[in-house]
C-alpha cells in the first residue's frame, strides 16, 4: 500500500468495512494511512468498534492513521470513546 494513500468512505456502513480491511493489511502499510470521512454523516457501533480495533493495532506508532473530512458530530463521538488521540486529523 503506498504511503499517503487515501481511502474514501461513503456512509456509516462503509466505516466498519474500511477499517476492518485496513486492520487486516496494516503490516503492509508504511508511513501514514489516511481515511477520507467527508462522506460520513455519522458513525455506527460497528464502525466505532472497527476504528477502535485499528487504533489498538496501530498503537506501536509505526503507522500513523489520519482521518480527513471528519464532521464535528463524528469527532465528538470519537472523543466520547477516547479515540481522538489515536488518530491524526489533518486540516
Amino acid at each position: 500500500m503506498p504511503v499517503d494513500s487515501v481511502w474514501p468512505i461513503a456512509g456509516a456502513e462503509g466505516v466498519a468495512r474500511a477499517f476492518e480491511d485496513a486492520a487486516g493489511r496494516l503490516e503492509t502499510v508504511d508511513g501514514e494511512l489516511t481515511f477520507d470521512l467527508s462522506g460520513v454523516r455519522k458513525v455506527d457501533v460497528a464502525g466505532l468498534r472497527a476504528m477502535s480495533a485499528l487504533a489498538a493495532k496501530a498503537a506501536d506508532g509505526k503507522v500513523k492513521i489520519a482521518l480527513k473530512g471528519v464532521n464535528v458530530d463524528v469527532y465528538k463521538a470519537l472523543k466520547l470513546v477516547g479515540l481522538t488521540t489515536a488518530f491524526l486529523f489533518p486540516v
Partner: peptide, 11 residues
C-alpha cells in the same frame, strides 16, 4: 454501553 452512547450522541 459507552460505544453505544457515543453513537447515540449523533442522533
Amino acid at each position: 454501553a459507552r460505544t453505544a452512547a457515543a453513537v447515540f450522541s449523533q442522533y
